[in-house]
Design a protein around this nucleic acid. Structure first.
Lengths: 132, 132
DNA sequence: TACATAGTGTTATATTATAACAATTAAAAA
DNA sequence: TTTTTAATTGTTATAATATAACACTATGTA
């Protein structure tokens, strides 16, 4: 069982926007989209994003500096993430493969170091773009 | 067999700096360090970095916006990278595990999409920092 | 040599992200 | 309920990261 997080007003506005978006959103595009709701400054956006990432409601796509809602019920905390990214249309999909997550969660390097967190980004062509 | 890349003057200056560094370097810290060698503008640094990444001599640590030399003889091209990152001291190590790279190179998602490239970043505590 | 390609130097600017501080709200403890 | 503590907000300013555009130069190859 995990703690329910009651989002604050700003967090909710920003989460809803990201959650409705089919593709990852960048911070300043979020800012632009929520200005009519009273969120005026970058910092207000970044603070909400930080919190949402921390509690696992969204993930950051590091190679794109963009944010996507978590659609993987098993990752309530942002500690184990994997995405596929199409290099043409930039479509991003969260990968939920039990095999992959088990493999990575148990991976140990040569020093026996165990990791508490990972982020994996695959790049390639999505189905649509392959056919073009 | 892979093509030898003859680095240009700027590329060489910047690669040498990164190669000598025990930890990843950020673009503007590189700029600061090579100004005495005549490289004066950010763009000169970024262009060299882009090329070096493209030919696989260095890798970008996406979560840190920093660059590290490739010390993995098997990845002559920047298409399959894995790193461990200590969240305290920020030490970054390139992981070269045949098992891991085979597993990821062969990974297919539910749609059967095959990837041409991936980047994996593990986070945790390095040995030193665990003992503290 | 002539051509094509890649790299250079430069100025300006775009994009992404955080510092610092005062005020406010929410949650938990007394 | 009151207190007090922590988290969040609003705001201005600024830092850090990265690219656009353009004229020029070097290099490799036919």
């Amino acid at each position: 069982m995990h703690k329910e997080h009651n989002l604050t007003k700003n967090q909710k506005i920003i989460f809803d926007l990201i959650d409705k978006s089919p593709q990852p959103l960048k911070a300043y595009s979020i800012l632009y989209n929520v200005q009519k709701k009273g969120i005026k400054a970058p910092l207000q956006v970044y603070r909400a994003l930080d919190k949402l990432v921390e509690i696992g409601k969204i993930h950051k796509i590091e190679s794109r500096n963009a944010f996507i809602a978590c659609h993987n019920s098993s990752c309530q905390v942002a500690k184990a993430t994997a995405f596929s990214i199409c290099e043409i249309c930039e479509k991003v999909t969260e990968i939920s493969s039990t095999g992959l997550s088990k493999y990575l969660a148990n991976f140990k390097d040569k020093d026996g170091m165990k990791y508490s967190k990972y982020n994996l980004e695959f790049f390639g062509l999505c189905k649509k773009c392959t056919l073009k």
